[in-house]
Structures are given as structure tokens and as C-alpha cells.
């Protein structure tokens, strides 16, 4: 099955599935499973029936989607930057790595939601707490993957750098970091899907006042099933789009790596 064949099959099949879903839910008539047409209508009414000047976004969309994306982006940016910097520092010193390895494995193994109450106590409710919580949640996969990548740099790369008398700064910036990039991206990919999970989780907690997760809680308390389904589908679409953007960036940055792998070098 070629890629093209797969892509050609994908869309018609999806449409067939959605039609089947529509028929089945209409036939069942269950309040818990609204037909997709109802969900889409609700999504449109809730978020995408605004004025054209605002890209059709409603006030509700501005209140739900933007805060969620903002939290996620802020947490992801902060956590990833810190993770890459600390990971590089750790990967460059095998001694520091040995000492901290155990502690870091422990910190990574803690499911982040278990610590959310700690963040609540420290920061109180609000944006600061949510950002800190998201950063803390995603820093470990980035940090540990970066450290692994920096530790596994081909020794001859480093020797070449030394033989040409590159300064330490330049060796780190131009040799260690790029050589570790494939691993860094593996960590970032984990961090991306994790950040969406913990963002929604943080918004599901009491004390939140906006975001898609908050919208889900409101729909839950009002027994509004179409709105709940709308929120879930919206999150699925956002997750899909974010992942596609990530893949585009990765393909650009790691083009050399993928090309080398497929060339069998």
C-alpha cells in the first residue's frame, strides 16, 4: 500500500464512518450520544459563528480556546527551554549525570497530576499555578532525552572539534546540540502530547474560570451532552493540528537526520 493510496483511501473512509456514526446515533436516539451533525452545529454555534473580522471566532471561543492554547504554549515553551538547557548541562558532565540520575528518574516517574495540589497550595488558583504546573509536568521527558542525546554524541565529532581548536562554547553549540537534536525532538514530542493532557487536567479542577477544560466542566454540571462532545472534538482537532505543526518543524530541523537514516548511512 503506497502512501498516496493510503491518503486517497483515508478521506472517503472517514466520510463513510462519519455517515455511519450519524445514522447509528439517530437510530439509537440516545441523549448521551448526539449525532455528529448536532455536535458540529453546536461547535459552530459555540465558537465559530462570530464576525468575519475576528476570523469567525465568538466571544465564547476567545474565552475558551485562547486561554487553553496560551497556557499550553507558555508552559511548553518554558518547560522545553529549561529542559533543553538543563539536559545539555547534565549531559556534558558524566559525573553530574551519575549523581542526579536516580533523583531525576524518580521525579519523572511521579504522575504530574499527583502534585497538582502542591502547586495549588504554593501558587493558589490561577494562571501562575497552571503555568508552573504545566512546565513541571513536561520538563522531565525533555531534560532526560536531551541529556541522553548529549551523552551519546559520537566521540569522533568531539575529537574533530577539538583538533580544530573550537572553543568549548562552540563545541557545545555547533556539535553537541545539533548531534543531540534527534533525541531532543523525541522528548519534545512526548512533551507536546503530555502538555495538552495536563492543560486540560488543570482546567478541569475547581477554581478555573476559562479554557476548554472549564467549558467541559460547565457542560458536565448542566448535563449538556452536545456541548461536551463539542469540547472533546475540538480538543481532538487541536491535538491533531498541533501534532502536524510539530511534524513540519521536525522535518525542517531534522531533515539531515531523516535523509541519512533512509539513505542507510
Amino acid at each position: 500500500m503506497t502512501r498516496l493510496g493510503g491518503a486517497l483511501l483515508r478521506w472517503p473512509l472517514l466520510i463513510v464512518l462519519v455517515i455511519l456514526w450519524e445514522v447509528a446515533t439517530r437510530a439509537a436516539g440516545s441523549a448521551f450520544f448526539p449525532p455528529p451533525s448536532t455536535i458540529v452545529t453546536r461547535m459552530h454555534a459555540l465558537w465559530f459563528s462570530g464576525p468575519p473580522g475576528r476570523l469567525f471566532l465568538t466571544d465564547q471561543a476567545v474565552a475558551d480556546i485562547l486561554p487553553s492554547l496560551g497556557r499550553m504554549a507558555g508552559g511548553l515553551a518554558g518547560g522545553a527551554t529549561a529542559g533543553i538547557l538543563l539536559g545539555l548541562a547534565l549531559g556534558l558532565s558524566s559525573r553530574a549525570y551519575d549523581y542526579l540520575d536516580g533523583v531525576l528518574q524518580f521525579l519523572r516517574a511521579i504522575p504530574p497530576p499527583a502534585l497538582v495540589t502542591v502547586f495549588l497550595v504554593v501558587f493558589g488558583f490561577g494562571m501562575r499555578m497552571q503555568l508552573a504546573f504545566i512546565m513541571f509536568s513536561i520538563i522531565w521527558p525533555v531534560l532526560l532525552n536531551t541529556a541522553d542525546g548529549a551523552r551519546a554524541v559520537e566521540p569522533l565529532y568531539l575529537e574533530t572539534g577539538r583538533a580544530f581548536r573550537l572553543s568549548r562554547r562552540e563545541r557545545v553549540l555547533r556539535i553537541v546540540l545539533p548531534a543531540a537534536l534527534p533525541k531532543v525532538f523525541a522528548g519534545l514530542r512526548l512533551a507536546l502530547s503530555l502538555s495538552l493532557i495536563v492543560t486540560v487536567f488543570a482546567e478541569l479542577l475547581p477554581g478555573t474560570t476559562n479554557g476548554i477544560g472549564f467549558q467541559l466542566t460547565v457542560a458536565y454540571s448542566m448535563f449538556n451532552l452536545p456541548a461536551m462532545w463539542a469540547g472533546i472534538v475540538l480538543l481532538g482537532v487541536l491535538g491533531y493540528l498541533l501534532n502536524e505543526v510539530f511534524l513540519v518543524v521536525e522535518r525542517r530541523v531534522l531533515g539531515w537526520h531523516h535523509a541519512r537514516e533512509t539513505a542507510g548511512a
Binding site: 569522533l156 565529532y157 575529537e159 574533530t160 580544530f164 545539533p178 541519512r260
Partner: peptide
Amino acid sequence: AVVFQDYSRSLFPWM
């Protein structure tokens, strides 16, 4: 200047 045997590991693939 040094030229190593293993060019695949002394040239940087990302440059």
C-alpha cells in the same frame, strides 16, 4: 589539521 579515517563520523551531518 587532522584528517580522520572515518569521514562519516568526522564530517558533521547537520551542516
